Amino acid sequence: MTADIAALRPELEAGLAQLAQEPALAGPLLDYLALLARWNATYNLTAIRDPREMLAKHLLDSLAMQPFVRGLAALADLGSGPGLPGIPLAIVTPGLQVTLVESNGKKARFLREAVRQLKLGNVQVAESRIEAFRPAAPFAAITARALATLPLILELGGHLLAPAGRLLAMKGVVPADEIAALPPGWQVAAIHPLQVPGLVAERHLLEIARRQA
């Protein structure tokens, strides 16, 4: 870990405290951030280059949704990119089995290396297009952080959900037009405003579920 990234520990610990997470989690989260910053210099995994900016916009933003995955058995992170929000969620929720679905080869290589180096026994990588992915068992939840509109996420990945499963979609402002365009059979079950330490922008978590007959 570089000195620059190690110096972010107090800021990360403060953010974790605001999110009711243990400060000890700062260590593995910074290890992930250091690995991401190192690979990003060569492979362009994320447009954000500054580690301090990554801290708020990637790590803490991902962790703001953690209360809504507690108690779930399995989560699929669709279009995971460099592992967001899946890897931070897996680090702070060891009982959660996380599958990172990513079709881009270089991003999938990074994900496998991150899982290996961080010793994340609760994470697996599926190098696959979302619509072609056929897991052995359906998921309690799927998530997508910066992938597509709600209708498109459901079109690509709705088949991955168990009957009572939910899409947990990270959005900025509440996307009324996307909600209005939800496919038949799906509805908004809940909308949760999120407070992300270090971010002033609006953030919401939308829970989308199948309509009950």
Results as ranks from 00 to 15, higher is better:
L72S: 05
P85W: 09
I87L: 09
D31Q: 14
Y32D: 09
L205I: 07
L205S: 05
L182D: 06
A56K: 03
G95T: 03
R109H: 06
I48N: 09
D61Q: 09
D61H: 07
Y43W: 15
A213I: 09
L72M: 09
L45R: 08
W186A: 09
L150D: 02
Y43I: 07
K106S: 11
G158Y: 03
N122H: 07
W39L: 15
E53C: 08
Q21Y: 04
V98G: 01
I191L: 08
A47D: 12
A164F: 04
V69C: 05
P151L: 10
Q195H: 14
H192F: 15
R116N: 13
G185R: 08
M65Y: 04
I91Q: 04
A90V: 05
R166I: 07
P28E: 03
R129L: 11
S80N: 07
H58N: 02
A3T: 15
I5N: 01
I208S: 11
A141Q: 02
G158Q: 04
L60S: 05
R109Y: 00
L118M: 15
I191P: 08
D4F: 11
P51Q: 07
Q124D: 01
L63K: 08
L8I: 13
K107V: 00
A169I: 03
E178A: 15
F110K: 05
A14V: 14
A176R: 13
A189Y: 00
A64L: 12
L60G: 02
R129I: 10
R166G: 03
A146F: 06
A74G: 09
V174Q: 15
A140E: 15
L118R: 08
D61V: 09
L45S: 10
A6C: 14
E22R: 14
V173H: 11
I179W: 07
P28W: 03
G86R: 00
N40R: 05
A90K: 01
L36K: 10
A209K: 11
P193Y: 01
L84P: 03
L118C: 13
A137C: 00
Y43N: 11
L16M: 13
G121W: 02
Q97H: 13
A73D: 13
N40T: 12
E13L: 13
L154P: 04
L35Q: 11
G15K: 01
L167M: 12
A76I: 03
Q97G: 08
A180P: 07
A24G: 02
E202N: 00
L118K: 07
G71N: 12
G71D: 10
G81L: 04
P23L: 12
L111E: 02
E127P: 01
A17Q: 14
E127M: 05
A144M: 04
G86C: 03
V173K: 11
Q18W: 04
M1N: 13
Q21E: 12
I5P: 02
E155R: 11
L72Y: 06
P197V: 10
A190N: 15
L199I: 13
M54I: 05
I130P: 01
W186T: 09
M170F: 08
I142N: 02
R109V: 08
A136C: 01
R129E: 11
L147A: 00
T99H: 06
L45C: 14
D61R: 04
I153V: 10
L89F: 14
I87T: 03
P135F: 07
I179N: 11
R112I: 00
L168N: 01
L8M: 12
L19P: 02
R166D: 03
A180E: 14
V174S: 13
L35M: 15
P85Q: 08
A146L: 08
Q97W: 01
